[in-house]
């Protein structure tokens, strides 16, 4: 005999509970958490490195870096003077994203009382990290002009979920056939009204408005 048993539960309920716990902890300790996502090779690490250089020391910043393997990104970010915790997801089965419990553990390695802004550099992937809340205050997606213009419509969940998009490597535009207007049109189609920052982490062009946006968000939380 077969019996149907009602369950009615979110499959990711465990992660969502842990994310809420993180969120409460970060609120109590006065830390703004930014979840940065992108495809591999969009220039996320360089963008963060340059962003942190502009924020420090006024905005005390720390970073959690997720990668499937290696500490290369952490090494590059440590140059900024910000405390960096590297998480290699291969220890958790080569995961393609950072889950809330991983952030909880990584945050234990930081002195959060001395941190205003915690940046989480998620694993390079436009699909999976969208499904995992980590307890962040804002999410941004980095894409670059060396990728296809249609990334936003190929990965609408990610672009819907984010609070801002950074379009990186604009210094390369003269050398590419990239249709920037088309890419921006796609972002607007998927997420109307989302701020889009066009910048080059390499040359520093366009970094100012992005850093100002982030700083304003951090200050709004810390002064709340």
């Amino acid at each position: 005999m077969t019996q149907e048993i009602k369950v009615v539960r979110r499959v990711l309920a465990v992660n969502e509970r842990m994310a809420e716990q993180n969120r409460r902890r970060f609120a109590e300790q006065g830390v703004f958490v930014l979840n940065v996502m992108s495809s591999p090779g969009s220039g996320k690490t360089t963008t963060l490195q340059k962003t942190i250089e502009r924020l420090m020391p006024a905005t005390r910043t720390a970073v959690i870096v997720g990668d499937v393997a290696t500490t290369h990104d952490a090494d590059r970010l440590a140059v900024t003077g910000a405390p960096v915790v590297q998480v290699n997801t291969d220890a958790f089965g080569g995961d393609c994203h950072l889950a809330a419990h991983v952030i909880e553990k990584a945050a234990d390695d930081l002195d959060l009382d001395a941190v205003d802004l915690l940046i989480v550099e998620n694993v390079g992937n436009l699909v999976c990290p969208a499904e995992f809340d980590i307890g962040e205050d804002a999410r941004v997606v980095v894409l670059s002009v060396t990728e296809g213009e249609d990334k936003p419509v190929k990965y609408p969940t990610m672009f819907r979920l984010c609070d801002a998009a950074l379009l990186n490597k604009i210094d390369l535009l003269p050398h590419l056939d990239y249709d920037k207007a088309k890419a921006i049109g796609y972002i607007r189609q998927v997420h109307p009204g989302m701020p889009i920052f066009e910048l080059s982490a390499r040359t520093g062009e366009g970094l100012g408005p992005w850093v100002d946006w982030l700083r304003a968000r951090v200050e709004a939380k810390l002064n709340a």
Binding site: T2, Q3, E4, I5, K6, V7, V8, R10, V11, E131
Partner: peptide
């Protein structure tokens, strides 16, 4: 992303 029920 929900489990509605199981049939046992």
């Amino acid at each position: 992303l929900d489990i509605v029920s199981i049939e046992v």
